[in-house]
């Protein structure tokens, strides 16, 4: 019974209901005699559970599949530059998006454009022989009594932009890339070029705390510290790094950057309780140093 190879065949027989009482007794060894019966009953019950009953509906899965396919299409869009002749239209769309984002109405002619106008303009260009920057998916349509077609379609577009680093849209895109599973290289670039503002700060905090890649967490933490933002959420993020980050380097960086107000006996006590190895001891030692410096 100690080595699985010794009873592989018996277990197969048990699981498939072929085990004789003698084989079952040998398999179960020193267990109570009724264990076989109970195990067989549980296996039988498990076999009667329909796993599909525990899953979402078909329509929910359909939406999920569509989202995956849309994401694949978006990720495989042609490289920037291919649609350079569409720059004016893309710029108009960007202006529209920014207008929506900031809720202003002083954007000149572009602010009168609706998304439908932009897509129609794209269709006219397509009819004139140019490729469209828009992709259509998930079309739903029906014919109306008057002969018109009622349509609903998802539209995705590729934008080629040249903008200042502190541009609102640029930073919105960078912040979104940080928290939405862009590639490692893109995340690192997003950290490097991320501008200011609470939205970006929150994205940097999320990256510093939760990005699966150490280099992104470290760079995001450094960016947060460089900003020297006094926001309470930044200080809480530093505390979280000190408490939970695996990297001693990052914990020490966070300790160094933490405001004096946050260095107190509570922090020392917490670190003391968590001290379990050399790395943690170094953090605790440094925290005490900072507390002493603050006390002077």
């Amino acid at each position: 019974m100690d080595h699985p190879d010794n009873y592989d065949a018996l277990i197969d027989a048990l699981f498939e209901g072929r085990a004789t009482p003698e084989e079952a007794a040998r398999l179960l060894g020193d267990t109570a005699g009724d264990e076989l019966e109970e195990l067989a009953e549980i296996v039988d019950t498990l076999s009667r559970i329909d796993p599909s009953l525990r899953t979402p509906s078909e329509s929910q899965f359909r939406s999920a599949r569509k989202a995956v396919l849309d994401r694949i299409v978006a990720a495989e869009a042609p490289a920037p530059g291919r649609f350079s002749r569409w720059l004016p239209l893309a710029a108009a769309l960007a202006a529209f998006v920014v207008g929506l984002a900031i809720g202003r109405s002083d954007a000149g002619p572009a602010e009168t454009l609706t998304l439908t106008d932009l897509v129609e303009r794209g269709a006219r260009q397509t009819a004139a022989g140019m490729s469209t920057p828009f992709r259509y998916s998930n079309l739903r349509l029906r014919e109306l009594d008057d002969g018109n077609l009622a349509m609903s379609v998802d539209v995705a577009a590729e934008l080629d932009l040249v903008r200042p680093k502190d541009d609102l849209l640029v930073n919105d895109i960078l912040a979104s890339s940080l928290v939405n599973d862009a590639s490692l290289g893109t995340r690192l670039k997003a950290v490097r070029y991320a501008g200011a503002g609470p939205h970006v700060r929150r994205a940097l905090i999320a990256a510093a705390l939760d990005d699966p890649d150490f280099s992104v967490r470290l760079r995001a933490l450094e960016r947060l510290i460089e900003r020297n933002a006094p926001a309470a959420e930044t200080q809480e993020a530093l505390l979280a790094v000190i408490a939970n980050e695996e990297s001693v380097v990052m914990r020490l960086l966070a300790l160094e950057a933490l405001d004096d107000d946050y260095i107190g006996s509570d922090l020392i006590e917490t670190l003391d309780n968590e001290t379990a190895g050399d790395g943690e001891a170094a953090v605790l030692w440094y925290a005490r140093q900072r507390l002493d410096r603050r006390s002077l």
Binding site: P51, S52, R54, T55, P56, Q60, F61, A64, R65, A67, V68, R71, I72, D181
Partner: peptide, 27 residues
């Protein structure tokens, strides 16, 4: 999709989290 969802549902934060994770896994 049902297999993937069933395997991750207990790791995820609720039903919506499991569905999001299922999408992520297929991507």
């Amino acid at each position: 999709e049902r297999l993937v969802y069933s395997l991750v549902v207990s790791f995820a934060d609720g039903h919506d989290g499991a569905l999001d994770l299922t999408q992520e896994i297929f991507f």
